[in-house]
Design a protein around this nucleic acid. Structure first.
Length: 489
RNA sequence: CGGGGUAUAGCGCAGUCCGGUUAGCGUACCUGUUUUGGGAACAGGAGGCCCCAGGUUCGAAUCCUGGUACCCCGACCA
């Protein structure tokens, strides 16, 4: 029936949408810009959460929870912060409904107007720093390393499932330190945790870098980022870690007594990744057959399909197989639907991105074999049932590595170095533009002008960019290193 | 928020211009039979506030007014 997926070549954004919908990851909801994350999609997010949470805990962070609502006045305390978020805030003005006296339905009770409006958090710096004032009095209270898993709301003009939704799920870490150096170390540590997670678990290679002033988080001294390249040659900001300096400490008057009993403002960081990562995951690996998931994040790593359908003999053998796989910590499913035929199940398991598919039938039982199919390469082999557990375990690792390598190769093929505006434009005009390394004179003015001319932005100044004398592609002024330009999500 | 498009069964669509029996097709769903190693075939069946609210009309999925949602392209952003 081929309800399948629009090919990427034909319409990339339709392809993305088809995958999200057909693989049952999420759907649009009755609420503008807000999505329903379905169980299978949420399962991927849960795996991400678990892995990240472990790494946060390993590095000394503890989870806490702060309110969804922020008093309006809080948001105005840090000037750059309010400027960054003012235009996309949901505001609660009333707290009661009533029956419409003129007819059916309910209306907002005008007598229930709030004294001070509440903002639905777009991010929690303000409410958290207002709280930290009470938590921090001495250098012995520092560092304070807190994370929260939460939903936030940003009233964006245009939304896309997972990549940009009005409400989204994320984690936000908020830390307080005694010195600028410690805050900087923390900021870089978290960037590295994000980068490692992206590469080792999502198999999504990222560039570690720092944002230019234009792209910096509202209220930060510096924003560190991990930038990934999607299959359509556009960049995705996959995670950010901000050095907040003393900006929020000053705005919320958070001071501590140092060892010499001298009062000082606290130094801060904040960092976050969101359900956007799921979108990045899709656009990094998936193909025209559907979703492709790296084994480490796949809710189901191995799907076993009985051929042609379940029966007592197959059930018994498969139960044994499943027990063996589960004993190795492998997440395994058994498609025991009696109505659907194997071909249908094969296609479905591909659409859902399940890394390994095992098909077992009468012929296999006679020969002592099993059919093993890997999702990344679509390769199918017949394997001996002896040692199949080891084989699958190894295969999952191979797939994880192969996906990463493939994504790296793609990024290499779509990374370019240019020295003139013409070259920059020529690359950007391609169907799949990619990352473009170029010299820049370091001014916001130049960056904005290039953005205006080409729609490309500076994604980051790579952390490991080699020093190299050059001339800004726009102004010809001297530059010490190349930065990355790209079109971005 | 500006421009363009769309809204009819779970999903994908036709019908709307030019109002007129019981609103149709594909697929999915239910039942049965035959099938079954790459998306089965046949037969029977169930499923609709035709986006919402008003209006015009003897009569509205169809015409008019207003609203809402989604998609695409911009500007804004994780």
């Amino acid at each position: 029936m081929a309800s399948a997926v629009t090919p990427r070549e034909e319409d990339y954004s339709q392809w993305y949408l088809d995958i999200v919908k057909n693989a049952n990851l999420a759907s649009n909801s009755a609420v503008r810009g807000c999505m329903v994350i379905k169980p299978y999609g949420f399962g991927i997010w849960e795996r991400m959460q678990r892995e990240l949470d472990d790494r946060f805990k390993e590095t000394g962070h503890l989870n806490a929870y702060f309110p969804l609502f922020i008093p309006k006045s809080f948001l105005s305390k840090e000037a750059a912060h309010i400027e960054g978020f003012a235009k996309e805030c949901a505001v609660v003005t009333h707290h009661r409904l009533m029956n419409d006296p003129n007819g059916e339905g309910v209306i907002v009770d005008p007598t229930s107007k709030l004294e001070e409006e509440l903002i639905v958090r777009p991010t929690s710096e303000t409410i958290i720093w207002n709280t930290y004032r009470d938590w921090i009095t001495s250098y012995r209270d520092l560092p304070l390393l807190v994370n929260q898993w939460a939903n936030v709301v940003r009233w964006e003009m245009r939304t896309r499932l997972f990549l940009r939704t009005t409400e989204f799920l994320w984690q936000e870490g908020h830390t307080a330190h005694a010195t600028a150096e410690e805050a900087q170390e923390e900021t870089l540590q978290m960037q590295e945790i994000y980068a490692t997670f992206a590469e080792k678990f999502m198999a999504m290679p990222v560039i570690r870098g720092v944002k230019t002033e234009n792209e910096r988080f509202a209220g930060a001294v510096n924003t560190y980022t991990i930038e990934a390249l999607m299959q359509d040659g556009k960049a995705l900001q996959a995670g950010t870690s901000h050095n907040l300096g003393q900006n929020f400490a000053k705005a919320f008057d958070v001071k501590f007594a140092n060892e010499n009993n001298k009062e000082e403002y606290v130094w801060a960081s904040s960092w976050g990744v969101s359900t956007r990562l799921v979108g990045g995951l899709i656009m990094t690996h998936s193909d025209d057959e559907g979703l492709v998931l790296p084994p480490k994040l796949a809710p189901i790593q191995v799907m076993i399909i009985p051929v042609p359908k379940p029966n007592e003999v197959l059930d018994a053998k498969i139960a044994e197989l499943m027990a063996g796989l589960k004993a190795r910590g492998i997440r395994v499913g058994y498609d025991k639907d009696k109505k659907k035929r194997p071909g249908f199940k094969f296609a479905e398991s591909e659409l859902r991105g399940i890394p390994v598919r095992l098909a077992l039938g009468k012929r296999d039982l006679e020969n002592g074999t099993i059919e093993v199919a890997r999702r990344d390469t679509k390769e199918k082999t017949s394997q001996s049932l002896d040692g199949i557990i080891d084989h699958v375990e190894q295969l999952l690792e191979d797939i994880q590595n192969n996906l990463f390598q493939r994504a790296i190769n793609f990024r290499e093929e779509h990374s370019h170095s240019v020295d003139t505006m013409e070259e920059l434009q020529a690359i950007l005009d391609r169907d799949v533009p990619g990352f473009i390394y170029a010299h820049w004179d370091g001014t916001s003015e130049t960056e904005l002008k290039i953005k205006e001319m080409t729609k490309a932005t500076i994604r980051c100044i790579p952390n490991d960019a080699p020093e190299e004398d050059g001339k800004c592609i726009l102004t010809g002024k001297p530059s010490k290193q190349r930065v990355i330009f790209a079109k971005a999500y």
